[in-house]
Design a protein around this nucleic acid. Structure first.
Lengths: 228, 228
DNA sequence: GTAACATTTTGATTTCGATCAAACGTCCTC
DNA sequence: GAGGACGTTTGATCGAAATCAAAATGTTAC
């Protein structure tokens, strides 16, 4: 129920060392950052933090997927991002100490590396390597967010789903098959769709040679899909 | 037609020195950054850069407004951000040297401070102050982008317009009046709406005490608007 | 294996905003 | 001030996706 907080074991250390946030750090810098890291585990649906909370921590996903979402006044939820293994989220708290501006929830069983915002904030000013790592992360998160706005505003539901599928196909391949890394309802949220709309989008993509069985997606002709 | 490129004059320097990107820099760091800055002016509708171009420069708006937008396959445009005085855009080019991922266009006559991506990239690694300034900028742009996704997904057109109006009202005020800083069609784009939808949203807000004459917005009761 | 439950799909309806078209205003030029 | 050009509003229609409801499929626990 309540998440367990543990010290980093060597397996987690290895995972962390391969994330885009930390992979380019020198051993010295890496150790400094990792010094204050804790590993926290959550069960599916557990809240990690709530919009409005003080941004005491930020996180890198080790395993599983995290859903970032906001509520409107009536309590309806809308996802604004999904973070998976290697992704870092809520790192803006380092730079302005205002409250989290979204809710974060474990979409499934999840383990996270938990950084202390305040101590990393100090590190950043003194360690250029760490600063650079954070800039890369911020930059990549910014690109994704702008991409998301563009996708929402430019593309229909089937087009968004097609885009998502194509991002998961090896570029050169003629045909492809892959497994969704998470539930369809989470994918729907990520794409800004109701689950029903995702389901209908998949079925409209049958015409473009996409077949879906459970979580397995099969694409007859990747280039044909690219054209619609 | 083609934009003029000038060296920074002292007025531009003053404006730059007050932007959130540069305001906290020491004189030394400020001078280093500003060393390679050029001022470029554009007429309304001029393209500043195109999606796919090499990210040679990034920009801070000195005066006017810039529209960032993307195209879908059919050539329809969708705005993904609007940048005004003090805002910095396209700074992600510093961190990964991939092409610009949107088009930038002067929404009206505009002057920009133009930074060389490559030289700032070098500065960043050696100068912690500059790194910090960029992190603040990235962080703020990231927050805005996520806010935009949330707003698009959670709120109807009238609600988005109401939010925009409220952001431009002094917090405490009972009633308020202000002038739109740019054309309504640009506001429509910023909010992800067709101009017609913006117009209809304004007229539906009459019921909440909002009256519009030209660019002047008048709000009878700010708190009432907050409730719808 | 079956019951209980969660997730996904399908169907019917409604709603919001896009689009097309035309009228209206405003600003600028000549 | 007449004439445009452009921006905005209004009207009518259309389409995409949300919502509500129910069926179907999948998963888990016992």
């Amino acid at each position: 129920m309540v998440n367990k907080i543990l010290k980093l074991n060597s397996r987690d250390r290895d995972i962390l060392a391969s994330t885009s946030l930390l992979k380019d750090l020198s051993p010295t810098a890496f150790n400094k950052v990792v010094d204050d890291v804790a590993v926290s585990s959550y069960e599916a649906k557990d809240l990690i933090f709530r919009e409005g909370d003080a941004p005491e921590y930020f996180y890198t996903v080790l395993t599983g997927f995290v859903r970032a979402y906001r509520l409107n006044r009536e309590g309806r939820e809308a996802d604004i991002a999904v973070y998976g293994p290697g992704d870092t989220f809520a790192e803006t708290g380092i730079f302005n100490n205002t409250a989290y501006d979204f809710n974060a929830q474990a979409a499934e069983a999840v383990t996270l590396a938990r950084f202390e915002t305040a101590s990393v904030a100090k590190l950043v000013t003194s360690n250029p390597e760490v600063a650079m790592a954070l800039m890369m992360t911020l930059s990549s998160n910014l690109k994704n967010a702008l991409e998301c706005v563009a996708d929402d505003r430019l593309h229909t539901a089937p087009q968004r789903v097609a885009n998502f599928i194509l991002k998961n196909c090896p570029d050169a391949a003629e045909s492809a098959r892959f497994r969704l890394p998470f539930q369809k309802s989470l994918l729907a949220g990520k794409l800004g769709l109701a689950p029903e709309a995702l389901s209908r989008a998949f079925s409209s993509l049958k015409a473009a040679g996409v077949s879906v069985r459970g979580r397995v997606i099969e694409i007859k002709d990747v280039n044909a899909l690219r054209r619609f």
